[in-house]
C-alpha cells in the first residue's frame, strides 16, 4: 500500500470524530457544569465551599455503591439489592462494634465491643458474602440478575429487620465515627474514601487484564466465550465487587450517622443505578467508565442539593430523578442505534 493509503485512513478517522459522538461522550460533564452554573446564579449559597463539600459528602455513600454498580452494569447486569445489603451489613458492623446486641444504646463506653477495624471487616465480609451468593445464583442457576437481586433486595432487608429486632444500634466510639464525620484538611473522610475507591476502580477497569475482560463479557458474551474467557466467573465476580462496595458503604454510612438501622439505604438502588446510567454507562453492557459514574453521582448530588436550597418539595425531587433515569437510558438507546446506522 502506498502513502496515499495512510492519508485516506487519516481522513476516515477524522470523519469518525463527529460532533455527536463528542457530545455523547462528554454530555454528563457538560450537563453537570451547566447545572452548577444555573444553581450558582439562582442561589448564591450553592457555590460556598461548605455547601460543595456537603454535596460531595452526601454523594459519597451512593457514589461508592455506584462504583461497584459500574462493574455490574458493564456486564449488562443489574443489582437491585444494594440498599438492603447495605442495611444488613451496617447492622452487623454496628453489632460487632458494640460487642453484641445487649448494649446497643450504651454511648461512649469503650470497654465494650471490638473497635472499628473489626466492624469494618464485618460489614465488608457480609457484603462480599451477599454478592457471592447472588453471583453464584445468577451464573449457576441461570436466573436473570434482575430476578436474583430483586429477591436479594427482599431477603437482605428481611435479614436486617430480623437482626435489628425493630430498633437502631447507635452510639459508636469516636475512632469509628471519624470514618463518616472526620475531615482531613477540611475534606470530609467519606469524600476521600469515595475518590480513592474511584481511582482504584478506574485503574482496575482500564489497566488490568480483568478490567478488559469485564468490558468484553459485557460487549458480547458469546464472542467472549468463544475467545476463551470464563464468562461465568467474570459475571459472578462483578456481583462480589458490588457486594464489597455495599459493605464498605454500610460502614461509612453507619459511621456518618453514628447509627445503623434496618431501613437504611431504602431506595438507594434507584439513585445508584441512575448515577451509573447518567454517567454514560450503557445498560446494554460493554461501554462506560468510572469517570462517568463519578460525574453521574455528582450530577444527582448537585441536582438534589440545588433543589433543596431552592426549597423544592422533596417528593418532586423523586419525580425528577425518576424522569432523568428514563431520559438517560433513552439517550443511550438513541446513541446506540445511531452508532449501528453508521
Amino acid at each position: 500500500m502506498g502513502p496515499g493509503m495512510t492519508d485516506s485512513v487519516a481522513a476516515k478517522a477524522e470523519r469518525d470524530f463527529d460532533a455527536f459522538s463528542f457530545l455523547a461522550r462528554f454530555a454528563p460533564l457538560i450537563f453537570l457544569l451547566l447545572l452548577m452554573a444555573v444553581f450558582a446564579v439562582l442561589e448564591p449559597r450553592f457555590l460556598s465551599s461548605v455547601n460543595l463539600f456537603n454535596v460531595m459528602r452526601q454523594v459519597s455513600i451512593t457514589g461508592l455503591l455506584a462504583i461497584g454498580m459500574t462493574f455490574v452494569i458493564l456486564t449488562a447486569g443489574i443489582d437491585l439489592s444494594v440498599g438492603s445489603l447495605l442495611a444488613f451489613a451496617g447492622l452487623v458492623a454496628a453489632a460487632v462494634a458494640k460487642g453484641g446486641m445487649q448494649d446497643r444504646f450504651t454511648v461512649g463506653d469503650d470497654t465494650i465491643g471490638y473497635g472499628w477495624p473489626l466492624a469494618a471487616l464485618a460489614a465488608i465480609a457480609v457484603g462480599l458474602l451477599g454478592g457471592l451468593l447472588q453471583g453464584v445464583a445468577i451464573t449457576r442457576l441461570k436466573v436473570p440478575a434482575f430476578v436474583v437481586t430483586l429477591g436479594g433486595m427482599s431477603v437482605f432487608r428481611g435479614a436486617a429487620l430480623l437482626f435489628a429486632a425493630g430498633g437502631p444500634i447507635s452510639g459508636f466510639e469516636p475512632s469509628f465515627t471519624w470514618w463518616g464525620q472526620g475531615k482531613i484538611f477540611a475534606v470530609p473522610v467519606p469524600v476521600i474514601i469515595f475518590l480513592v475507591a474511584a481511582v482504584i476502580a478506574h485503574i482496575v477497569l482500564s489497566y488490568t487484564r480483568y478490567g478488559r475482560r469485564v468490558y468484553a463479557v459485557g460487549g458480547n458474551p458469546e464472542a467472549a466465550r468463544l475467545a476463551g474467557l470464563n464468562v461465568s466467573a467474570i459475571i459472578a465476580s462483578v456481583y462480589i465487587i458490588m457486594g464489597f462496595f455495599s459493605g464498605l458503604g454500610a460502614f461509612v454510612l453507619a459511621a456518618r450517622l453514628n447509627s445503623a438501622e434496618a431501613v437504611a439505604g431504602t431506595g438507594y438502588e434507584l439513585t445508584v443505578i441512575a448515577s451509573v446510567v447518567i454517567g454514560g454507562t450503557s445498560l446494554f453492557g460493554g461501554t462506560g467508565s468510572i469517570f462517568g459514574t463519578v460525574v453521574g453521582s455528582l450530577l444527582i448530588g448537585v441536582l438534589l442539593n440545588g433543589l433543596v436550597l431552592m426549597n423544592v418539595n422533596s417528593y418532586i425531587q423523586q419525580i425528577i430523578i425518576g424522569i432523568i433515569i428514563v431520559l438517560a437510558v433513552a439517550f443511550d438507546t438513541f446513541a446506540k442505534s445511531r452508532r449501528r446506522k453508521n
Binding site: 478488559r212 468490558y215 460487549g219 458480547n220 458469546e222 464472542a223 467472549a224 460493554g286
Partner: peptide, 18 residues
C-alpha cells in the same frame, strides 16, 4: 459480528482479548 467481534470496543481489545 455476533460471535467474534466486540463491536463497541476498540480494535486493540478485539485483537488482544484471547
Amino acid at each position: 459480528k455476533q460471535q467474534a467481534l466486540f463491536l463497541s470496543l476498540a480494535i486493540r481489545t478485539n485483537m488482544s482479548i484471547a
